[in-house]
Structures are given as C-alpha cells and as structure tokens.
Simulated assay, not measured.
Amino acid sequence: MTLFKHVLLASHGTPGAVAAENMALQVCASEGMIDHLIVVPEFWQGMTGDDWLNNGVTRNQFNDYLQTELGKEVDQQCNRLQRKVSAHAFNYHSLIFFGKPDQALLECTKKQAYDLIVLGSSRPRRMPGLPVLRSTMLTKQLITAIQTATLIVPYPE
C-alpha cells in the first residue's frame, strides 16, 4: 500500500467522518502530517433570529452564546482528533473555516500541496434515527476542480 506524507482530512466527527479519519491514519506515512479541515457551515449565521420579538441586545447575546457553543464543539473535535493522530506518531494541524465546506477544501488545496485528500462519503439519504441534515462537501464543483488524489471513504455500515 502506498503511504502519503501530507494528508488533508476533512472531518467533523460524524460516523462517516470518523471512518475517513481511520482511513487517513492507515494511509499516512511514518512521521507524516495530517491537516484536519473542519468547517462550520454558513447556515449557522441565520440562527440569531431577526423577528420582532428579538431586540438587538437579545440577538447579540444569543449570537455570542451560539459562537461560544460552536467554538467549544470545534475545539472538542480538534482535541479528539489531535489525540488520535498523535497516538499514531503523526503530526497534526487543524484548519478551521467558516462557510461552505467544498469551497473551504478547495481553498486549502490552493494554499498547500497535499499528497492525498481523505473525505467520508455522503451519508445514505434515509437512515432511521439520524437527522436529515447532510454534508455538502462532495459537490460537483469540488469533484471537477480538485487537482489532488482524493480518497472517498464509504459510510460505515
């Protein structure tokens, strides 16, 4: 099996993303580097509310609360994955973006050359007990624009 020195791993901690993490650990070369891309999707911006019941102070307080909670979640994911990567003696670097996941990944590949990109596949549409929200990482734009070898890991059974 070919091993890769510098891997870009997109993960946000869901089961499909964890499958991608595990694969990245298998294909990373000894003393390699895993750059962890985590994206806070832009749809969170609209969660602050703008109806007539909310005044500016309430909106700002909720916005601060939401940013704090999202920051904690991102930090938890980064810390969890850093421990996992370090346990395999690989180097870890987090890349945190706010916006569209596919555009964030493309931006990363423009700033840094990678040997491999590792992504989890889209979750099957209908899975009992799971929310219907799905990642938008694997867009047609991304698939046609990417210039780096990409490994799309199947969703775990």
Score class of each variant (00 low, 15 high):
residue 70 L to Y: 01
residue 65 Y to H: 14
residue 54 N to M: 14
residue 94 S to C: 09
residue 78 C to A: 11
residue 109 T to R: 07
residue 100 K to L: 09
residue 87 A to M: 13
residue 107 E to Y: 08
residue 85 V to R: 00
residue 58 T to D: 08
residue 71 G to Q: 02
residue 107 E to M: 11
residue 87 A to F: 10
residue 56 G to M: 13
residue 104 A to E: 05
residue 86 S to R: 12
residue 70 L to M: 03
residue 89 A to P: 00
residue 60 N to M: 14
residue 61 Q to R: 15
residue 111 K to G: 06
residue 69 E to F: 03
residue 56 G to N: 09
residue 79 N to V: 00
residue 48 T to M: 03
residue 60 N to S: 15
residue 76 Q to P: 00
residue 49 G to I: 07
residue 78 C to K: 08
residue 58 T to P: 00
residue 81 L to C: 01
residue 74 V to Q: 01
residue 103 Q to A: 15
residue 113 A to W: 04
residue 109 T to G: 08
residue 68 T to V: 02
residue 85 V to D: 01
residue 105 L to E: 01
residue 114 Y to I: 03
residue 87 A to Q: 14
residue 95 L to P: 00
residue 54 N to S: 13
residue 113 A to M: 06
residue 86 S to K: 14
residue 98 F to C: 07
residue 107 E to T: 07
residue 66 L to C: 08
residue 115 D to G: 07
residue 112 Q to Y: 10
residue 111 K to R: 15
residue 56 G to C: 08
residue 89 A to F: 13
residue 80 R to S: 11
residue 77 Q to R: 12
residue 75 D to E: 14
residue 115 D to L: 08
residue 73 E to F: 12
residue 62 F to L: 09
residue 105 L to P: 00
residue 82 Q to F: 05
residue 64 D to S: 14
residue 104 A to P: 05
residue 70 L to S: 05
residue 48 T to N: 07
residue 115 D to E: 05
residue 90 F to L: 14
residue 69 E to G: 04
residue 108 C to G: 02
residue 91 N to M: 13
residue 106 L to R: 05
residue 78 C to M: 09
residue 49 G to W: 08
residue 48 T to V: 14
residue 104 A to D: 00
residue 88 H to C: 13
residue 73 E to K: 15
residue 108 C to Q: 09
residue 72 K to I: 08
residue 77 Q to K: 11
residue 63 N to A: 15
residue 105 L to K: 10
residue 69 E to C: 06
